[in-house]
Design a protein around this nucleic acid. Sequence first.
DNA 1: CATTAATTGGAGAGCAGTCTCCATTACCCG
DNA 2: CGGGTAATGGAGACTGCTCTCCAATTAATG
Lengths: 193, 193
Amino acid sequence: MARPSRFDVDQLLDAAVRLAAAGGPPAVTMSAVAQAVGAPSGSVYHRFPGRPALLAEVWLRTVESFQAGYMAVLDAESDPRRAARAAARHVVAWSRRHPAEATLLFYGAADFGRADWSEEHTRRADEGNERVFASLGALADALGATDARGRERIALALVDLPLTVIRRHLRAGTELPPYAEDLAEECAAALVG
Amino acid sequence: MARPSRFDVDQLLDAAVRLAAAGGPPAVTMSAVAQAVGAPSGSVYHRFPGRPALLAEVWLRTVESFQAGYMAVLDAESDPRRAARAAARHVVAWSRRHPAEATLLFYGAADFGRADWSEEHTRRADEGNERVFASLGALADALGATDARGRERIALALVDLPLTVIRRHLRAGTELPPYAEDLAEECAAALVG
DNA sequence: CATTAATTGGAGAGCAGTCTCCATTACCCG
DNA sequence: CGGGTAATGGAGACTGCTCTCCAATTAATG
């Protein structure tokens, strides 16, 4: 029906992810993305109404991809202790497979301009978080963690700590060692008790 | 000898810390700092040769203040297990006392424009890190952690994990609960073994 | 009181990035 | 083969930030 597109949304988002991983969210400028794929800036504005929308999509696509895999792992295992270990491993394995995307996770939605997002984008972000929060809460119950402190300890063990293992190496610029998955799993197990 | 200054370095850095905590490093513009203290932009350039130097000083003053207190705690206690617990507690206690500064720790030197820093600033950053790394290495030895993996686990327990406890709440916007110090200490103990 | 030196105060040049606008291009369909 | 449609390609207005420059101000000093 019309002229075929040379630049599709995912191609632009991929470039944006690379830029963000290399230089942080501020490096994701409309012109930089355009230049990265060899397009004029007008083409970027054809796909995204503005920079806030582009940043929101970069963030949401990354986080939702991470969360989808994470929750799949949580739900696949019925024994809570084994689910906990698998979850911790998964975080590291996912980051190993998606290094640029993992880098983005160490920023927050705020760094991607959440304040300027559309209501729709904000809602998507909140819903994703709530879903993970709910799954994690159910697992915490199964593990006998009843109060806020116990739940926090579970969240630390299954999400934050594995991510931190990655972060140490990204920060230092050293390569992720082969034992990273084991380390995350064994630390998670130690914290879950 | 001369006209007295209305705006001193620390006053400008304090404002910069507040801006960075609220809006991330990109929010620390020369004009924003000037406006925050009620000065014209020229006055900021009188104290700092440019934005890279300002960002470097903001980062280094914060990190060095954190590291000084941290190493004092590590050195004050000779029993390694007690030192470990005290260190974890200290990270949380320091962050509670310095919420804005703690927020900055979740960025990296790269986000504060390390690539544009002077050689002097880069050196200061590296030296601080090496000192902490050395102290932590000594403690790891005392705890019987010999290989890279064991050392990494110690670092996770004594630095990254306590910081992560803070980060969860800063991200979510919830207040730091009173049990945070205990939680960090008990998690660190569990990881140190 | 005049000199001197450090500092303020602010105007504005230059630049980078966002976003608008619209002519042009290329494909699909009847 | 020509009309309709979706996309490109790029020029340029506008905005906000960095940084320069220099006159005006203020206090200590001899």
